[in-house]
Amino acid sequence: MTDGDRHTRDGAPGEGAPGEGAPAHSDAIETLGALWSQLQPPARGAALSAQDDATRSAVAWMQNGYAALQPLTPSTVARQHMARRPRRSRRPAGRSLAAAAVLAVLLGGTLALNGLRTAPVDRGPPRPDDSVAVAPAAPAAAVVSGADAEHLELRSGPVRLILLTNASPLALRNDP
């Protein structure tokens, strides 16, 4: 492992004095790297002995070319790209699921309540008024129940309408 491959955490908070815990960590990483290297497969081409010379040459050229291939994007750039990209986490999925569940419960509750409200209730023999929407009776003609210089009060059954205006109430009353 080259010096450039080594990693230290000198000065990192909570790591103790610089150089105290870092070497052990670097050693562990170095050991990891060495062990990782041991996972490499045996040398290629062992199974080609039975092939003719031309085939062996062609495959050997392919193997050498393949072994010399390097990523177009250096690993450092790729690692930075990976570091920037958020790892897939299960928490957002869980949150989304929980939110969806809550929404479903609320929606279901609302629908259930609406169902209860609109469910037919046994009120004895059906009457036409129960199932047929009845248009309200034609409102009685509005009556001016009060008027002065600044307001005008109209009354139609239980409804009162108060209009505040600077105009003369008499003028309003005469409008078509």
């Binding site: 491959d5 990693h7 960590h25 990483i29 990891l32 790297g33 990782w36 290297s37 393949y66 072994a67 291939l69 390097q70 990523p71 177009l72 690993s75 790729a78 690692r79 990976m82």
Partner: peptide, 25 residues
């Protein structure tokens, strides 16, 4: 740091695999 070490060693080999399967650099 383990991820970094792993990435440094694996990326070239994974690239070669991808190159081999896709045949496009």
């Amino acid at each position: 740091e383990a991820i970094d070490a792993w990435y440094r060693r694996e990326h070239p080999e994974v690239y070669r695999l991808c190159f081999g399967f896709l045949a496009e650099a």
